[in-house]
Design a protein around this nucleic acid. Sequence first.
DNA 1: GCGATTTAGTTGAGCATTCAACAACCTGAG
DNA 2: CTCAGGTTGTTGAATGCTCAACTAAATCGC
Lengths: 153, 153
Amino acid sequence: MPVMTRWLDPDEQRTWRAFLTASRALMDTLDRELQRDAGMPHAYYEILVRLSEAPGRQLRMSDLAEVTGSSRSRLSHAVARLETAGWVRREDCPTDRRGQVALLTEAGYATLSAAAPGHVEGVRRHLFDALSPAQVDQLRRISETLAEHLTRS
Amino acid sequence: MPVMTRWLDPDEQRTWRAFLTASRALMDTLDRELQRDAGMPHAYYEILVRLSEAPGRQLRMSDLAEVTGSSRSRLSHAVARLETAGWVRREDCPTDRRGQVALLTEAGYATLSAAAPGHVEGVRRHLFDALSPAQVDQLRRISETLAEHLTRS
DNA sequence: GCGATTTAGTTGAGCATTCAACAACCTGAG
DNA sequence: CTCAGGTTGTTGAATGCTCAACTAAATCGC
C-alpha cells in the first residue's frame, strides 16, 4: 500500500527555497572571489586551511577527506592539482604502507596567508554583516544540528 | 595605509564551519539521492520544477536563469542536456527574435512527477525533521535576509 | 533613422566532481 | 599462517560548471 507523500507546507516550501537561493548565492560569490583573488576554488582553499592547522602542517589523506567533507576520490584529484601548483606535497605514511600524508609547503602557506584576509573579509561582508548576533547564534545551532543529523544517517 | 583584517571571533568561526559542513552535506546527500532515483542532478530537477510552475509550463531562458539562480551559460548547457533527454524543448520567442523559450514536455512532467515524492521526502528527512518549528522559522528569516543581502551587492 | 551600446543566448575550452573499477595493504577468524 | 574481507588511495571516463568570446537582435541617444 503506497504511503502518501507528506508535501511541504507553504512555510516549509518558502524556507527551503530561501535556503537554496541564499546558500547557493553565498557559495557562488565566495568561490568567485577566491578564484579571482587567489586562483583557487573554495574547496581547495579549505584543504590548505585544514593542513595549516594540523600538527606539522600535515594530515593523512583519509583524515583530510574527513575534515573537508569530501570523498577520497575528490581529495585525490584535488591534492594532485595542489601538488602541481606547488602548494602541497605528498609523502608515504611511515606507519601504514597504503597511506599517504599530504603536507603544506612553504609556498602553500604563503599563498594561504596572502589569500586569507580577503576571504575572511568576504565571509564577513556576505554573511555576518547581514545577520544580528542572535541570528548568528541561531545559524550555528541549526547548522550543528543538521551536520549531526546528516552524519548519523 | 593597510587596513587590519577583522578576523572571525571563535563563535563566528564555529558558525561558519558548521554552516559549511551542514550545507555541503545536505546538498551532497540530496544530489546523490536525486541522481540515483531520477537520473539527474539537483540543479536540473530545479529547472523542471520551475518550468512546471510557470504558466504554460514555459519560461524565457533568461527568466529561467533568474529564478534558478544560474548563469546564462550554465542554463544553456543544462537545457541542452535536458533537451536531449526529451524533458524540455526549446522554441523561438514570438516577441523577441533573440529569445528562446524553454518548455517542459509531457515526458519531462512525467519524470518530475515520479521524482518529486522521493525528493520531498528527502528534504523532509534530512532538513525539516531535524529542526524545531522555531528553528525552521529562524532559518527562513536568516535565508531571506541573506538572499536579499547577496543580490544587493 | 543610424551608429553605439546593451541584452539574449550559445559555444568551446578548461577545470572540478562523481562513479566505478582497481591495486595495494592491513586485519582478524579459524 | 592463511585467506577473506575491509581499508587506503588512485585512476579514467563521463558529466557539469565557469569563463571568455562570439552572434544576433533590440534599444538608446541624437
